[in-house]
Design a binder for these strands. Structure first.
Lengths: 230, 230
DNA sequence: ACATCGCCTATTGTTGACAATCTACAGATC
DNA sequence: GATCTGTAGATTGTCAACAATAGGCGATGT
């Protein structure tokens, strides 16, 4: 039978997973602000479920690092410092560089498939830039990079990058006006795509490094060094 | 399930954390074999606790990737394929290379502190090699690399590497005679330490890459390409 | 006024019972 | 004999009640 997709409130299968995904999305969208407390009981009754699955989901997100749990005090949305930003983007650079190598070593077919996906993402991105829809740009930005890493086909790399993507979106959303050089945005991603397609390993690595460095500069520019961003 | 004599009744505060840590240790030591099922209820009664904390610990290890959970069927110790080995060591190479750069960029002091730690590890390793105590060598091998990464001071990198270290130990332990070139072992690590101390970035990267490549060759040599190692 | 002690509340941590669901097996049916 | 079906058992998934604990706040004594 054709499976009719159920609604978001409560589905049959992996409840904790659904809660975690939903919550992560709400956090990176800024519905829960950094430093804000999340109460197990309250969330459970809101979701019409018990504390068990909620607790499981919260624990999951804590392990991912976007929540911090203090014993008998509560769980709170992560607050990011400038140092955190530097850490995150340093690791992102490492992961994406590795993915780039794996892609280029993986054969023409793999590169081609990945590029096809990346092209559509850039296309969507250009549309949203044209109408200045920042809300839609951040997810697309991350989708580009996530797809890039996914193209390498290393499941561990992908799993690592998922957490980094969530943290990056938290960085971006907490920066109010997130993209100072919004016109460069599409161009930069297009450049990465071109270099991947061309197979220019050297320049691709440089482009990734620069992309990350610029991001760190933008994200840390307005704030003091050790200050909390959010 | 085999009676695990190594598990102690737990006290103190973060119960689930303790269970997870102990269980992880038991798994990388091979007390729980790959593919073996781990039963929540049984484990709970062995630990004189309830299913809640045990479940939490198992979920944590599942997220780390050293357990796999199948709904309503049970949780099982991860079985590693040759592809898994390649994945793990590819990511390890990326992480350690990043750590190397961060170390060298972090100043003389940081490098010096790290080298001091690494020296003692190598010293211990040499002792165990001398008496051919393989059981003790694997942890020291991982301790070297974990300390190396820790020296970079990037908490996210460290967290990522902890999981990789656990998976690596699973690779090693499942290979029976794990170190074909046991005499080279100390030498290779010493070489990495020397290059770090010298600050030779180029050669250090090469050494790390070679170290990982050799490991993959050793670990996949005896088995078919897609075969399960354990 | 100030420091100290002890209660109070909010929140997580823990527990045992109960429900849902998957697999395997045995029996019926063709 | 092969295949379908329904039932049993094992295991996780869910739940609500209960316990422990950390930190706040006020009473109390000086």
């Amino acid at each position: 039978m054709a499976a009719p997709e159920g609604l978001f409130v409560l589905e049959g299968r992996p409840t904790a997973q659904l809660i975690a995904d939903q919550l992560r999305e709400q956090i990176v969208q800024g519905i829960f602000r950094p430093g804000e407390q999340i109460n197990e009981s309250v969330l459970a009754s809101q979701l019409r479920t018990s504390r068990g699955p909620v607790r499981e989901a919260l624990q999951r997100l804590s392990q991912e690092g976007i929540l911090v749990s203090r014993r008998n005090r509560g769980v709170f949305v992560l607050e990011l410092s400038a140092d955190d930003v530097r850490e995150i983007y340093a690791v992102r650079e490492a992961v994406e560089s590795t993915a780039a190598d794996a892609l280029l070593d993986g054969g023409q077919e793999q590169v081609k498939d990945t590029c096809r996906i990346l092209r559509t993402v850039i296309s969507d991105m250009a549309k949203q830039v044209a109408v200045s829809d920042w809300q839609a740009i951040a997810p697309l930005d991350m989708q580009f990079h996530t797809s890039f890493v996914a193209g390498a086909g290393n499941t561990r790399l992908i799993r690592i990058y998922e957490t980094l993507a969530a943290e990056s979106r938290m960085c971006i959303l907490n920066l109010a006006v997130a993209y100072p050089r919004i016109d460069d945005l599409v161009q930069e991603h297009q450049n990465i795509l071109d270099l991947l397609e061309k197979g220019d390993r050297e320049e691709l690595h440089k482009a990734i490094t620069q992309h990350m460095q610029k991001a760190v500069e933008d994200l840390t520019a307005a704030r003091g060094d050790k200050e909390i961003i959010a």
